[in-house]
Design a binder for these strands. Structure first.
Length: 474
RNA sequence: GGCGACGUAGCCAAGUGGUAAGGCAGGGGUCUGCAAAACCCCUAUGCCCCGGUUCGAAUCCGGGCGUCGCCUCCA
């Protein structure tokens, strides 16, 4: 059984798909008006792991993640830069795709955009007006929040409390301050799309309700997004969907923790986001990816250069083992020893850890235990069996967590390195240790770790795992 | 002001009633020409503080203190 924490009911909930064997997921994607930062990368990576794990457990997964390509921020940015909304959106969507792909995130099954779904959105709004959950006024349409007795339940607030600190929206056409826009009338200098209510654009929340319904149907299993979307975005989405469907649109609401830096939330408006493109100049993609997985997805993650480097140190331990076992032939026989049991039980331990609310932090602990057990096996003289099982286990874990660097094609660099190792070993045999140590220094400075063992010397590429050397500041 | 989350070793971080996972850093040892890697051992009698419930609490309840988030665009 797979248990997931549900934000609506505030408890762990068994995942029981609407359609047996098939899990449908919708997550709120980004508004492509600026560069991708770590706060966007986290949900992308987290949901990638969730999808992979569900598939590993035998489910067929339908995953939809939208792009909000019609939006006030985008209009504003278009004004500032003189570029079209379309070209801005295109650029940042392409960047988002490229960067998440680098982080080994598999693309969604559908990545719908607002611009391609205006018909569904308009239709959705029309139905809400028909049922009097919404009203049009002066070319805009608003949702009548007071019609939903459960409004506020998802985000844990009630309307009376909210009215206390309510910022008064100057919009005089709303019946009540808490009503929110489904359709916003275009001002004279703003771009707009035709609708039964005149030229305008959709409000932020309606798109997700409309697209989720179009791509996944009236009810689906998991709805995700950052904690910061809980209110008002998801609260409003739920209200709309309940109004149209007469019931819950979502089985389990899933919210990922925010990324902070120095304890302050990363956000576009604060301009303190860690740019993912820039980060990947300094750290390998799988280090960045797994750093995001080193903490449970619901916990806040405080980003810090020193910590991601430290995490890279730990990851190197797993990677060294992979270097050690990647070419091991398969065997079945394991001795009756404690370490061997650990290797044999690894897969089930690992997967059942992820069954409990996708606990990647604990899953990594299971991997580290397995790494240690493998070396104990090797030290105890059963290297062949230990390597074979470690190889198999690492492939299982990697298929979900994605921590192994892609295999690099052979390069002249690698050939040179091998030659240096040969020369060094020759020097060592001749007792010329000064020369041998010099050759080793050359290799280390070229980014290799030099591992001498009873069966010869192996090289391990440090730059794959550790922080890349930071260019000296002028 | 309202609502919510969190506070675990030098650092990061699991753990929701049964006697503190894992990683990094550090110390001692084994192995090694040396170094690295690896292995073995050590590093929180205690989980922000004070009470309470319980045979038993990091975990539940009450009260503090602190940090953060949402209430406005935000993953």
């Amino acid at each position: 059984m797979i248990a997931v924490y549900d934000s609506l009911n505030r408890r762990m909930t068994e995942l029981v798909p609407q359609r047996p064997g098939h899990v449908s997921i919708y997550t709120c994607g980004v508004t492509p008006y600026d560069h991708t930062h770590l706060g966007h990368a986290r949900p992308a990576v987290v949901w990638d792991v969730i999808r992979r794990h569900l598939m590993r457990r035998g489910y067929i997964v339908s995953y939809v993640q939208n792009f909000t390509d019609i939006d006030d921020k985008l209009i504003q940015r278009s004004r500032e830069t003189g570029r079209s909304i379309e070209s801005l959106a295109e650029e940042y969507i392409a960047e988002y795709h490229a960067l998440t792909l680098e982080l080994s995130v598999e693309p969604p099954d559908f990545a719908p955009r607002v611009s391609g779904n205006l018909d569904a959105i308009v239709d959705y709004i029309r139905r809400l007006i028909e049922s009097e959950y919404a009203y049009s006024a002066d070319g805009s349409v608003y949702f009548r929040v007071s019609r939903d007795p459960e409004y506020g339940r998802l985000s844990g607030r009630n309307l009376n409390d909210m009215r206390e600190g309510f910022r008064i929206d100057p919009d005089p056409f709303k019946e009540r301050a808490e009503d929110f826009a489904l359709w916003k009338k275009s001002q004279v200098d703003e771009p707009g799309w035709e609708s039964p209510w005149g030229k305008g654009r959709p409000g932020w929340h309606i798109e997700c309700s409309a697209m989720a319904r179009r791509y996944l149907g009236a009810r689906f299993d998991l709805h995700g997004g950052g904690m910061d979307l809980l209110f008002p975005h998801h609260e409003n989405e739920r209200a709309q969907s309940r109004a149209l469907l007469g019931g819950e649109p979502v089985s389990i609401w899933v919210h990922s923790g925010l990324i902070t830096q120095g304890g302050v939330k990363m956000s576009k408006s604060l301009k303190n986001g860690v740019n993912v493109g820039a980060l990947l100049e300094r750290y390998s993609p799988h280090v960045v990816r797994t750093y995001l997985l080193s903490v449970h997805y619901r916990s806040p993650l405080d980003y810090d250069d020193a910590r991601i480097s430290e995490w890279g140190q730990g990851l190197a331990r797993i990677e060294r083992l992979w270097e050690e076992v990647r070419l091991a032939p398969p065997t079945q026989d394991l001795p009756e020893e404690e370490w061997a049991q650990e290797l044999a039980l690894f897969e089930e331990r690992f997967l059942s850890t992820l069954d409990e609310d996708f606990n990647t932090a604990r899953a990594f602990a299971v991997v580290f235990d397995m790494v240690a057990a493998t070396y104990r096996g090797i030290e105890s003289g059963r290297g062949e069996a230990a390597r074979a099982w470690a190889r198999r286990n690492l492939l299982v874990a990697d298929s979900i967590l994605g921590f192994l660097a892609p295999v690099k094609p052979a390069t002249t660099d690698g050939y040179l390195a091998d030659t240096l190792v040969e020369r060094r070993n020759q020097a060592r045999q001749e007792g010329n240790f000064q020369w041998a140590d010099m050759l080793r220094d050359v290799l280390i400075q070229s980014g290799y770790e030099v591992l001498d063992g009873p069966h010869g010397t192996r090289l391990f590429r440090r730059e794959d795992t550790h922080a890349k050397p930071t260019p000296k500041k002028q």
